[in-house]
Write a protein that binds this DNA or RNA. Structure first.
Lengths: 338, 338
DNA sequence: AAGCGATGTGTGACCGGTCACAACGTATGG
DNA sequence: CCATACGTTGTGACCGGTCACACATCGCTT
């Protein structure tokens, strides 16, 4: 590749240098018993002297495993960075995987082309398992894992057609609870900024809102946007005010969306919570940085990541995973915005 | 590993099924010429029928390359997620690498243990090259790359002792310019919230501040913190106000730090920019979301990522990289905070 | 003294691809 | 009609490890 990259030392070079066989070197490398003290020191010295570094590709090929786990996010790259929720899940997963000395590799799928490249990447025993975040309902990635029979756990509820272990929250119930809180503060005209309806979280939050509103549900007061983004919240709130200037309550599908809504309300001269009550979802860093701070649903994002990673580890140990899914608790956090 | 994971189809299975040899299958897989039309269709049919997926580990071993490039961040995981600057660099790098159909894998180094694991990971031909972000001045990672002779480009200025291609900005000059702006608005008692002095960016920004202040530089008005974080800005600003309640100007080493400072000032009853002028650095998303919006230094973070990735690509093509470093332009953006 | 288990070491096959080379038509040109 | 070139295919070696097995040595028991 490069002009004259020097050939790297192999296990044979080490064996030659130390005056032993490949097998013995391999044993030392893997910390196996049944190696004499002399052989061990000779080999360690030889490793240092020839500058040996094991070749992971060769090891992976021979052992048929990689000691790496993928963290797959099917979102635009920008959102991956902006959404503190995904970040917290990543943190949790990384904590658990690091603890087992597995390398976590993050892969973001942004385009159709990315999707194919990632599939190719995964197909080579590059990862032993994967944590998958924000898969679409019809995600081709999910079937790819089925084909490759790589252990995977999904964060969020997978479509019924796919049999994969998962961890998630009761988005519908939580959305219902936070909406009921909003209703309980005396609001009459309540709208929703609904987002990501192509995913279980988005669809379920809308369903929960509908549950809570009952007869008072008004389709006209639901503004939709594709992604959980600040800017989406801003523009959706503007649209909602246009549709009905008398709204006095808003359920935003995420804290980032709520933050955007807050700014749109401020720009329109509305006071929060005096004129309009606003609630969010996630209890992410957005919630505490907004002014006023957001009343929202706390979801244990970090714990979701940890549980998902643990589930992958369990599968790697050969345990049969439950396909029922694990549902973690959420609760309403009341702050200043409603 | 798992109970009875079925053996995956190999190139030999495909060859058998199609009635040709391994070599011919390999040719089809790699899109080489000199394959008859009949052989090609027979092989394609066989691939589909046996469900063949190429094994990347084997291919990597044979070809001695991986078609993947690492994106290495040596920061706490939480910061990796919170810092929009790193995010923008990542976006830029990903855009370029995707364009060349290389898989980008993100690796975050958080602890000493991570560091060793990542080195092990890299050592196996797992990546053909790497973009390295926010390396410390004495980073062991850098020497590891030297040992492995894997092409890498650093974002930021590397220590003089390490000969590696890099792209960066003139932190010192830019810090000087923004400080001069602050001075130009008539501020008399100007402090700095200095961060990450163990990295070139942090140290250079402090140096630039010093340059601009000249005789009026007062060490007492410089508050130090380890990381570019919102919370660091908040606490550092509190400390600065304690040290000298008469400060009327603040240069925060990054926008996130400035945002924290803004909140601390608000909590202390100071108005910005009336009582205190505040300037940041980066022109990241924080700058436009603060109230008031931040006067700051625009740095082309995304472009930095793109250039770094392009440099890695060039090295992969066998071009001899320049070790002089590429410096991209910055400029002061004046908004409401000073 | 023979038998046995534990410890230590070497060897060859194998993981699943790639690649250089040899070999085999078949068409073309002298 | 033979030499040559070109297109197409198969074969064996190789990439750098791991692993099961064979074998040697040694101390201890019976």
């Amino acid at each position: 590749m490069a002009t004259t990259r020097p050939r790297r030392a192999t296990i044979r070079d080490v064996a030659l240098e130390a005056g032993v066989s490949r097998g013995t070197v391999s044993r030392v490398l893997n910390g196996e018993p049944y190696v004499s003290a002399e052989a061990r020191v000779a080999i360690e010295r030889a490793i240092a002297s020839v500058g040996y570094v094991p070749n992971t590709a060769a090891r992976n090929l021979a052992t048929q495993r990689s000691r790496a786990v993928g963290f797959l996010v099917h979102e635009p790259h920008a959102l991956f960075l902006e959404d503190p929720n995904i970040g917290a899940i990543l943190l949790g997963a990384n904590r658990v995987l690091s603890g087992s000395d597995l390398q976590m590799v993050s892969l973001v799928i942004d385009s159709e082309r990315d999707s194919r490249r990632v599939e190719r990447y995964l197909s080579g025993g590059f990862v032993d398992g994967a944590v998958i975040v924000s898969a679409r309902q019809e995600d081709s990635l999910l079937s790819a894992f089925g084909r490759l029979s790589i252990p995977a756990t999904i964060v969020g509820r997978p479509p019924a057609s796919v049999r994969v272990p998962w961890v998630g929250i009761d988005n519908r119930g939580a959305a219902r609870a936070i909406t009921e809180h909003l209703v309980g503060t005396g609001r009459r005209r309540i709208g929703m900024l609904a987002v990501a309806l192509d995913r279980d979280s988005g669809a379920d939050r809308l369903a929960g809102f509908r549950d809570a509103m009952g007869d008072r549900f008004d389709r006209h007061l639901v503004v939709e946007r594709p992604l959980y983004e600040y800017t989406a919240g801003r523009s959706a709130m503007e649209e909602l005010l246009e549709r009905d200037p008398t709204v006095d309550g808003v359920f935003a599908a995420s804290d980032a969306v709520a933050a955007g809504a807050l700014d749109a309300l401020r720009a329109a001269g509305r006071r929060v919570p005096d004129d309009v009550g606003v609630v969010g979802f996630d209890d992410s860093s957005w919630a505490q940085r907004s002014q006023p701070q957001l009343t929202t649903v706390h979801q244990p994002a970090r714990l979701l990541g940890e549980r998902a990673a643990e589930s992958v580890l369990a599968q790697l140990r050969g345990e049969e995973p439950s396909l029922d899914g694990t549902i973690l608790e959420t609760h309403v956090v009341v702050r200043g915005s409603a």
